[in-house]
């Protein structure tokens, strides 16, 4: 692969020390091209979200190297890096400050980054995520889960990042709303040329969203596949086959929709 945008080299993450310590991620490696959508999938507790938090800079205690655009990321991240890379959290009920109006949620990153035309940008981003400007003066508890997740996505995109880390962005939402949010994310990626790294335990979601997929088990990256291989079941590891079989109906439905 020529000049990947995000690259992980030999990433190992431990929690705790000595005998009681747990190795959450072991020698994870992958590379993502600019504009690509990459999926990490596995059962809960397999370390996929841990990788995401390390890349985002929320957990500086990792071994190995994370490269963004060819340069290694320092453990303590600066504002410039946060403008390139943002993260969408799993639970939109927990990721918005309960006391902050939508307008204040969106204006804060602009203030921190020292960006101009604040009001214009807020209006633009709200319409981009499919909310009208009337949402500006609402509080999170007045919004539905889907609306909250749209606000959370707007908050990340308002600083114009190039890489979006998506930590199961739809798993806390109703099934009917999930599709809306996934389609929104797909459209935003097309329109803005974003790169996605998405984590999920839902193979249908990943197959719908991602070009390439890595299967994780117990902190290891077991197998790397393309979405075609997932749909056709062309896998080598037994675990992957079982995993796919368990969610086969969902994938079949997804393949039918895609085809």
């Amino acid at each position: 692969m020529q000049n990947p945008y995000l690259e992980l080299k030999d990433l190992t993450i431990r929690f705790g020390h000595g005998a009681s310590g747990v190795v959450a991620v072991q020698q994870a490696e992958f590379a993502i091209e600019e504009g690509e959508s990459y999926g990490l999938i596995g059962e809960s507790g397999c370390g996929k979200s841990t990788i995401l938090r390390a890349i985002a800079g929320l957990n500086p205690h990792y071994e190995g190297r994370i490269l963004l655009d060819g340069t290694e990321l320092p453990k303590q991240r600066g504002k410039a890096l946060f403008r390139k890379m943002q993260m969408v959290f799993q639970d939109p009920y927990a990721s918005l400050h309960p006391r902050k109006m939508v307008q204040n949620v969106l204006i804060e990153p602009l203030q921190i980054m020292g960006m101009d035309r604040k009001q214009e940008r807020i209006d633009a981003i709200l319409s981009d995520v499919g909310l009208d400007a009337g949402f500006r003066y609402r509080f999170p508890h007045e919004l539905s889960g889907g609306q909250r997740q749209r606000i959370a996505i707007a908050r990340t995109l308002i600083v114009e990042p190039r890489l979006l880390l998506l930590d199961e962005p739809t798993s806390a939402l109703d099934v009917s709303v999930q599709a809306e949010i996934l389609n929104l994310l797909n459209r935003l990626r097309r329109d803005r040329g974003l790169t996605y790294l998405m984590v999920s335990h839902d193979i249908a979601v990943i197959a719908h969203m991602c070009d390439r997929i890595a299967i994780m088990k117990d902190g290891r990256m077991l197998e790397k596949l393309t979405s075609q291989q997932v749909r056709s079941g062309a896998v080598t590891e037994d675990y992957t086959r079982e995993f796919l079989a368990a969610s086969a109906p969902a994938v079949a439905r997804e393949a039918a929709q895609a085809g």
């Binding site: 600066g78 403008r83 993260m87 400050h97 600083v159």
Partner: peptide
């Protein structure tokens, strides 16, 4: 909580997170 993580990822200083 996630909303504090989110604001950390926006580059907010410890003082800003604490006060605001």
């Amino acid at each position: 909580s996630d909303y504090i993580s989110a604001v950390r990822l926006q580059g907010a200083s410890a003082l800003r997170i604490l006060v605001r």
